[in-house]
Amino acid sequence: MPLTIATWNINSVRLRAGLVCRFLSEQAPDILCLQECKSPVEKMPLQAFRDLGYGHVVARGQKGYNGVAILSRLPLADAGDLDFAGLGHARHVAARLENGLTVHNFYVPAGGDVPDRAVNEKFGQKLDYLTGMRDFFHENAPERAILVGDLNIAPREDDVWSHKQLLKVVSHTPIEVEHLGGAQEAGGWVDVTRADIPQGKLYSWWSYRARDWDAADKGRRLDHIWASSDIAAAAHSSRILRAARGWDQPSDHVPVLASFDL
Rank of each mutant, 00 (worst) to 15 (best):
L52Q: 07
H138P: 03
H92E: 12
V192F: 00
Q125G: 00
P142R: 10
D212F: 11
A183D: 02
G181K: 13
K63F: 01
R134S: 13
G111Q: 10
G187L: 03
V256N: 11
A118R: 15
P255N: 06
W189P: 08
F23Y: 15
P40E: 14
T4S: 14
I153A: 04
A210M: 14
I240N: 01
P45G: 06
S162G: 04
A227E: 01
A243P: 01
G149A: 02
I146F: 09
Q249I: 14
V41G: 09
A258Y: 03
F136V: 07
S204I: 09
K122G: 05
R60G: 12
D135R: 13
L52P: 10
R221S: 04
A227F: 10
R156V: 07
G88P: 09
T7M: 10
V119T: 15
F260S: 08
A210V: 02
G182R: 05
W213Y: 14
K218G: 09
D150S: 12
A227Q: 04
Q199P: 05
S25R: 15
G18M: 13
E26C: 12
H236S: 14
C33G: 13
M44K: 02
A195I: 02
E121N: 11
H89Y: 11
R16K: 11
S237Q: 12
R16D: 03
A94K: 12
A77Y: 00
G64V: 10
V169K: 15
G112S: 06
R156Q: 14
A244E: 15
W8I: 02
D252C: 11
V148G: 09
N152F: 07
D214F: 14
E98G: 12
R194Q: 12
S207T: 14
G124L: 01
D30P: 05
P155F: 06
A243V: 12
G124V: 01
A69P: 09
L147V: 13
S25L: 09
L74G: 02
V256P: 09
G53M: 09
L87R: 13
I231D: 10
A154H: 03
V93M: 06
D248M: 10
A110I: 13
E176M: 02
L3C: 03
G100R: 07
A145S: 15
P142V: 02
A110N: 15
L202Q: 12
A227I: 03
A154K: 11
E157T: 13
I175H: 13
V58S: 08
T193Q: 11
G200D: 02
A195N: 05
S39M: 07
R245Y: 03
A258N: 08
F123K: 07
I153P: 10
W189E: 08
Q27Y: 08
G61M: 04
K218L: 13
Q62W: 11
L71C: 09
V148W: 05
L167E: 15
E157H: 06
V57Y: 00
T102N: 03
G219H: 05
A232V: 08
D230F: 06
G182L: 06
T173N: 07
Q249D: 15
G112F: 03
A244Q: 13
A258D: 08
N120Q: 12
T4F: 04
Q125A: 12
L127M: 09
V256A: 08
P198T: 10
E176P: 05
T131R: 14
D261I: 00
Q249G: 09
S12E: 06
